[in-house]
Amino acid sequence: MHHHFLTIPQLGIERCQTILRLAEKLRHSDAVPQLGATVAVAFFEPSTRTRLSFELAAQRLGCHVVSFSAPGSSIEKGESFADTLRTLQAMGAQAIVLRHSASGSVHAAARVLARAALINAGDGMAEHPTQALLDARTLLDVFGSLDGKRIAIIGDCLHSRVFRSDYALFQMLGAQIGICAPPLLMPHLPKDAAVERFSDVDVALAWADAAVVLRLQRERMAAGLVPSLADYRRRYAVTLERIDRSSAYVLHPGPVNPGVELDAAAVEHPRSLIARQVTNGVLIRMAVLIEIVAPELVQQSFHI
């Protein structure tokens, strides 16, 4: 059993490529392997789609799914994070799918788990590696390869785990990365980082082959990082007109704030890949579960 699925750099190019290829195989398979493993889905932070996507993936692979979410759990009784994870492990979970609002929580979890493998389903602002893999799978479906492709990531990159995982994976796959964000939401990358920086979404879209539009959290406004939505839309929103003026494909990790970072109608645009992302999400998560719980099947599947 492979141990832990934490971050894109920790996975490395080979494991990422394997998962991307395996997801594509699963798309065309009539019969998927039945793993019979016990998978705990532990969400310490609310989420609907990622959680459903993981649960569905596990069920399709014939896994027993134990679901756990922090509200209403013993976390409220003061049980510690570490204790909760040790308990899930002791109950026989072979894989624990973990979502937590604190960056690095999967690393803290990895330090207390000896047997169960961890799958990062999003930790704070740090990483969301299955999202990056499903984004890459979606882009590969369109482009075949990401080598030399220009991908703009637009919006609140500073606070975004999707940004960090996408950035790491797309670069690994040979893409050029552009970032378009208001100054207060720009990530503090090293000065010599190989990225294009944009402060005008039209320029970014004209440059890009595809754009990943990030959700603008309302709390950024409350924190005073975005003075007003109108101000944000003027320079950074991906509107229908702006998409039409460009030739870029559009992705969004969801859920969309309609009329904020992306126009509601843009979801249905011919160059929108958002529905495809959701479909690919289940395939990627199935591939991840197979790669973690039954790596021997990965070998077999490529021999067929």
């Binding site: 510690s80 994070f81 570490a82 937590h100 604190a102 960056s103 690095g104 929580s105 690393h107 803290a108 979890a109 330090r111 207390v112 930790d123 704070g124």
Partner: peptide, 11 residues
């Protein structure tokens, strides 16, 4: 040890 075993932002 327990306090420092928490996720980084919470430790």
């Amino acid at each position: 040890v327990d306090e420092k075993q928490q996720p980084f932002p919470l430790a």
